[in-house]
Write a protein that binds this DNA or RNA. Structure first.
Lengths: 214, 214
DNA sequence: GTCTATACGCCGATAGAC
DNA sequence: GTCTATCGGCGTATAGAC
């Protein structure tokens, strides 16, 4: 916790995230990273004990951003704008940290600490998504039997699509850049999980809002 | 295409699939593989030009199994049993080849041929899933506006959950074995994508069938 | 804080004997 | 078909000078 600028530490993190997003977490080694940054291996290992520590630091940043984007508590009123913005914000965070979700299984297989931390973040997110569904139902936007189990199931489907949408794009677009429009498509996919239950007026209001963003 | 038994070739494929399923595709090298099989590197490289060729051969097997499981054409009548069995069969194939879906992005990033082949399989599967939704609608099980776009959207959501369900289990269960019951849970998740549109009698019939399997 | 230099292991792959 | 032997390269990580 020194006051001096430890600029290389920041550069390492930023560069590592960018490279891993581009080529995948497994493809980036400390050697490559040092070359790109034009620093020495010794320098990198002064700032981080090992490669795991770099990924853990990146995960910590992701976690912070995600908790902010999901909101520490469900919003008080789910206007169509609040609803649409919620997913835009969270998917943006997923996109900025796509290396993590794309290489997730490999990353947590070789780092138990990261695995535990990820699982508690996932649990938290599932609860948050279930709470949003429950709130939407309470406000009359979702016509759905009031059942914890049902909310949980919707949350899992939402999470599966949410956390894999960017990966699906990377797989499907093969090199082409991922655009803002692609991300909005992701929100529409997530939204379709609820579609069968949605009150028609509310549904079209949210979809109108999504069109504006795109 | 010789008539003699090329047994080691088969052993290499089987062992490679098993190891990759267990530890991830990136974690298994030719060296490890040879040690486990108690054969020499030269032997392995007699049967396969390189590691890519092994993975491609495994993909070919996956593709064959998957096309059989999805059926070459949509079934003539979607009885609840047909519907449930369809997903049980396909998810089993996904489970037997989970290494592929878990490490997909990394695998196709380093093999353009595999990438192309995978994408056409995915396209085919999306069409098949859309056809199933359309058929279910035609038979009156799904109450849904007759729109190609809607069927496509449902197919994508189904595919996202289908192709990531086993990965989600691996991430969430961390070492615990994946059971048959876990797979049936996956089918229920997929089924929930349709839940809002389903004709109630049909829905409960399919769910009853799933309970039997579990 | 940053550098140079370097150890060590594993990986993919090949040559050539049997 | 299968083996032994081996190569070059890259990955992580460390020691120790500046």
């Amino acid at each position: 916790m020194s006051k001096v600028k430890t600029n290389n530490r920041t550069r390492i993190l930023a560069s590592c995230r960018a490279l891993m997003n581009k080529e995948g977490a497994q493809a980036i080694g400390t050697t490559r990273l040092c070359e790109v940054l034009e620093i020495s291996p010794g320098n990198l290992y002064y700032h981080f004990k090992n490669k795991e520590e770099i990924v853990r630091a990146l995960f910590a940043e992701l976690e912070t951003d995600l908790r902010v984007a999901f909101g520490e508590e469900p919003p008080s009123s789910l206007t169509p704008k609040v609803f649409a913005d919620f997913y835009i914000k969270t998917l943006d965070v997923a996109h900025e940290n796509r290396f993590f979700f794309s290489g997730l299984l490999h990353l947590i297989r070789q780092d138990d600490v990261l695995a535990t931390d990820y699982l508690s973040l996932q649990d938290w997110a599932l609860d948050a998504l279930a709470a949003v569904a429950e709130q939407a139902a309470k406000e009359g936007h979702l016509k759905i039997p009031n059942s914890k189990k049902r909310y949980r199931s919707i949350a899992i489907n939402t999470w599966l699509i949410w956390s894999n949408w960017v990966r699906y794009l990377e797989i499907s677009k093969q090199g082409d850049a991922i655009s803002r429009a692609d991300m909005v498509l992701g929100i529409e996919q997530i939204f379709d999980v609820l579609s069968g239950y949605l009150e028609p007026g509310y549904e079209s209001a949210v979809r109108r809002h999504l069109k504006v963003v795109r």
